[in-house]
Amino acid sequence: MSDHKTMTLTLIVWRQKNANDPGKFETYTAKGITEHHSFLEMLDCVNEDLIHSGKDPIVFDHDCREGICGMCSQVINGAPHGGQDRTTVCQLHMRKFKDGDTIYIEPWRARAFPIIKDLIVDRSALDKIVQAGGYTSCHTGGVADGNAILIPKPVADEAMDAAECVGCGACVAGCPNGAAMLFTGAKVSQLALLPQGRAEAAARVKNMSNAMTECGFGNCTNHYECQAACPKGINVKFIARMNREFIKAQF
C-alpha cells in the first residue's frame, strides 16, 4: 500500500493572466509526489513551492474533489480530465503517471468558454442552455403524490443515466466543433423520458437547441469525442434521442 517511492515530474502549464492576455506555457517541476497523491494534490504541492518562492500559484477550478460537482476542468496531455475512463481530474491519481514524465496541462478550449485566468474558463453558457428550458414548469407546492405517476424501473434508470451529467463541459472541450450536444442531449433526454417532462418536451428541445447556437457552441458531426471525454460515461445515444425529439417537435 504505502511505499515511500516518490516521483519527480515536469509540468508544462498554460499561464494566462486574464481574458485579454495572450497566455503562454510555463515549465515547472513537481517533486516528492507519491502514487497516492491526486492530480490536484500534486498541483497543490507545486503551488506551495511557487508561493514560498514568491511567485503566483497556478489557478484552477475545483471544489468537491470527489468527482461530483463538475467544477474541475483541465486538459491533460491533450485529453479533457486526463483521459482515464469515467474520471474527473480531481479523481485522477498520480499512480497513473511514472517518475520522470512530462505532463501538459491546459484549460478547456472552446469558443463558448472564454478563458478567465490560467486554467479557469467561463462556462456560464451551459447555465444559459438550462435556463432556456431544462426544467419542468411545476410550481412549489400543489403537485401530485410521488407515487401518482408510475415510472417503471428501466425508464427511471435510463433517465438517471442521462441525469448523471455533472455539467463540467469536458464534452465541449473534447469536441472538434466545440458542440454542447452531449450536455444538452442528456438533459433533454432525461426530461423527455419521464412522464413529468413530456408535456413541455417539444418547446424544451427547440428552446435549448436555440440557446446552444446563440451561445456560440458548434454543430455535431458525429466524432463521439464527447463520450470519450465524459467523466460520467454519458452515452451518445442521448444525442440521437435529442435529434429525434427535435424532429418530432417540428410537427
Binding site: 426544467y135 419542468t136 411545476c138 403537485v143 401530485a144 410521488g146 415510472i151 417503471p152 424501473k153 425508464v155 427511471a156 434508470d157 433517465a159 438517471m160 441525469a163 432525461q190 426530461l191 419521464l194 413529468q196 417532462g197
Partner: peptide, 8 residues
C-alpha cells in the same frame, strides 16, 4: 414533479 429520477 421536477423530474428527479428517484429509484423505482
Amino acid at each position: 414533479a421536477q423530474g428527479v429520477p428517484f429509484a423505482r
